[in-house]
Simulated assay, not measured.
Amino acid sequence: MTSLVGNADARAAISNADLAGNLHHAWLIAGPEGVGKASHAREVAALLLARAAGDSAGRTVAMIEAGAHPDYRVLQRLPVDDKTDKGLQRSIKIEQVRGLGAMFATKPSMSSRRVVIIDPIDDVERPGASNALLKNLEEPPTGTIFLLVSHAPGRLLPTIRSRCRVLRFDPLGDGEVAGVLRAALPEASAAEIATLVRAGAGSPGRALRFAGLDLAAIESALVAIARDGDPTNQQRVRLSKALGVKAAQQRYEAFLERVPAFIAEQARMLGGDRLRDALDAYAAAADLARASIAQSLDAATTAFEMGTLVSRLAPRR
Rank of each mutant, 00 (worst) to 15 (best):
V116W: 01
G128F: 14
E138W: 12
R114S: 02
S111Y: 10
G128M: 14
P120T: 04
N136I: 08
V124P: 02
L133F: 12
R113D: 05
R113E: 04
N131H: 14
S130P: 00
I121R: 04
P120R: 02
S111T: 10
G128A: 15
P127L: 12
S112T: 14
A132R: 09
D122F: 04
E125F: 04
E125Q: 15
D122K: 05
E125W: 03
I121K: 03
E139V: 11
L133A: 13
D123C: 04
D122R: 07
D119F: 04
N131E: 09
I117P: 08
P120A: 02
L134Y: 11
E125Y: 07
R113K: 10
D123Q: 05
V124C: 01
N131F: 02
R114Y: 04
V124D: 02
V116C: 04
V115K: 08
I117S: 03
R113A: 06
P120L: 00
V124K: 01
I118V: 15
I121A: 05
P140C: 14
S111L: 07
L134G: 10
N136Q: 13
I121D: 04
E138C: 10
R113V: 09
S130R: 14
G128W: 13
E139M: 13
I121T: 05
V116H: 00
S111E: 06
R126C: 01
S112P: 00
I121C: 03
N131C: 10
V124L: 00
D123K: 01
V115D: 06
P140T: 15
S112I: 02
R126I: 06
S130G: 15
L133E: 11
S112F: 08
R113C: 06
L133S: 13
D119M: 07
I118G: 05
E139S: 13
V124F: 03
I121F: 04
V124R: 01
E139Y: 13
L134N: 10
P127S: 11
R114F: 03
S130Q: 15
L137K: 11
K135S: 10
E138P: 07
D119S: 08
P127I: 11
I121M: 05
R113Y: 08
L134S: 10
E139Q: 12
N131D: 11
E125K: 05
R126D: 05
I117M: 07
I121Y: 04
R114A: 00
P120H: 02
L133G: 11
L134F: 12
E138Y: 11
E139G: 11
N136F: 15
A132C: 13
A129V: 07
P127E: 14
R113S: 05
E139A: 13
A129M: 07
E139P: 12
K135W: 12
N131T: 12
E138T: 09
P120G: 02
V116D: 03
S112A: 15
R126G: 08
P120K: 01
V116S: 03
E138F: 12
D122S: 03
R126T: 13
A129R: 03
K135R: 15
N131Q: 15
I121W: 02
L134Q: 10
A132T: 12
